[in-house]
Design a protein around this nucleic acid. Structure first.
Length: 218
DNA sequence: CCCCAGGCCGCGC
DNA sequence: GCGCGGCATGGG
């Protein structure tokens, strides 16, 4: 498949130029500073809450947790299951997510535990699939693990004509990008932004920053 | 009214 | 290994 290396880097450059740095994962550092809690724990919590759910709804749930000073591993483990369900309700799937939050946090133990956990171990925890595992590794543990999501699949398919399984696409990116933590973080965030602005399910191709190299512009 | 959103699990095949 | 239904709220 042609030179994926330069193609991927070209996409990255165009998106970065169009949207600027995204500085993912979004966390409220000031809040954690004032509470003496670890902001990386919010990444783990947010990653589970946002599964198939709009970030807008996740923010409401996170806000509820903050108001009750429960936005931490300790907080999630200490609160009653039923109360947790009520607090995260706006994020949807609240019955599953409440259980999974406790399960995932109970099993990972601490964010530092993520530094040594294998991806396979994470996947064995109920509630952590491919994307969530990579989000935890990349954004919470600062480990070089590229995140694929439906947006990335869609963009790569449309722009480069490449489709594949999660693992195949993950390998494609990791084999063709420099081993740069910040780039991994930004690239995934930029893909997300791009899918929301232009590469929607029904694409808006007018003014798209990837027009020049997209195989399927309308 | 419809469709979608920063997935994952359990099942059947 | 892949496809499907279920899970649930809030916004467009």
């Amino acid at each position: 498949m042609r030179s994926s290396r330069s193609e991927l880097l070209r996409i990255y450059d165009l998106l970065l130029n169009a949207y600027g740095k995204q500085n993912w994962w979004p966390v409220d550092k000031e809040y954690h500073k004032s509470q003496g809690t670890d902001p990386r724990e919010e990444v783990v919590i947010g990653a589970i809450l946002t599964q198939n759910t709009s970030w807008r709804n996740v923010e409401k749930a996170i806000s509820n947790l903050k108001e009750n000073k429960l936005l931490s591993f300790k907080g999630i483990l200490s609160v009653e299951l039923e109360e947790l369900k009520a607090l995260i309700k706006p994020a949807g799937y609240y019955n599953q997510k409440a259980k999974r939050l406790k399960e995932v946090i109970g099993r990972t133990g601490s964010v530092d535990g993520l530094k040594s956990a294998s991806r396979k171990e994470l996947l064995s925890i109920k509630g952590i699939g491919d994307e969530t595992a990579d989000v935890l590794l990349l954004y919470a543990a600062d480990r070089l693990s590229f995140v694929i999501d439906t947006y990335t699949k869609r963009i790569v398919k449309r722009v480069l004509g490449i489709s594949g399984s999660y693992d195949e696409l993950k390998t494609l990116f990791e084999a063709n990008l420099p081993k740069d933590l910040e780039m991994y973080k930004e690239f995934h965030a930029l893909m997300d932004e791009h899918a929301k602005r232009f590469c929607r399910k029904n694409p808006v191709c007018g003014g798209c920053p990837l027009r020049s190299l997209c195989l399927s512009v309308k």
